[in-house]
Measured scan of single mutants.
Amino acid sequence: KELVLALYDYQEKSPREVTMKKGDILTLLNSTNKDWWKVEVNGRQGAVPAAYVKKL
Rank of each mutant, 00 (worst) to 15 (best):
31 S>N: 09
29 L>E: 03
1 K>P: 14
20 M>R: 01
22 K>C: 07
7 L>P: 00
6 A>P: 00
33 N>M: 09
53 V>I: 09
53 V>D: 03
34 K>E: 12
14 S>V: 04
35 D>Q: 10
24 D>A: 07
10 Y>P: 00
25 I>V: 11
18 V>W: 07
16 R>V: 12
11 Q>F: 14
26 L>F: 07
34 K>A: 13
28 L>D: 01
13 K>M: 12
11 Q>K: 12
34 K>P: 14
39 V>D: 00
46 G>W: 06
22 K>S: 08
56 L>T: 06
14 S>E: 08
11 Q>P: 06
41 V>K: 14
35 D>W: 15
53 V>W: 01
50 A>F: 02
20 M>D: 00
35 D>E: 12
33 N>R: 09
41 V>E: 02
10 Y>L: 01
51 A>C: 15
4 V>M: 05
51 A>H: 13
16 R>F: 15
21 K>M: 09
37 W>H: 02
25 I>A: 02
10 Y>R: 01
43 G>S: 06
45 Q>V: 15
36 W>F: 08
55 K>M: 12
23 G>F: 05
19 T>V: 04
1 K>D: 10
16 R>A: 14
17 E>M: 06
51 A>I: 11
44 R>D: 03
17 E>Y: 07
12 E>I: 07
12 E>C: 14
46 G>E: 04
14 S>R: 07
23 G>L: 02
36 W>P: 01
54 K>N: 06
8 Y>I: 10
55 K>A: 09
46 G>R: 04
54 K>Q: 14
32 T>E: 14
47 A>K: 14
23 G>E: 02
27 T>A: 09
12 E>A: 15
41 V>I: 15
20 M>E: 00
8 Y>G: 06
50 A>V: 06
5 L>H: 04
52 Y>K: 10
4 V>Q: 01
5 L>I: 15
35 D>H: 14
8 Y>V: 13
36 W>A: 03
45 Q>W: 07
46 G>H: 05
38 K>G: 09
17 E>G: 14
35 D>G: 08
24 D>S: 06
1 K>C: 15
38 K>W: 15
50 A>Q: 05
9 D>Q: 02
27 T>F: 12
45 Q>I: 15
40 E>T: 06
41 V>P: 00
7 L>M: 10
13 K>F: 06
15 P>N: 11
56 L>A: 05
38 K>M: 15
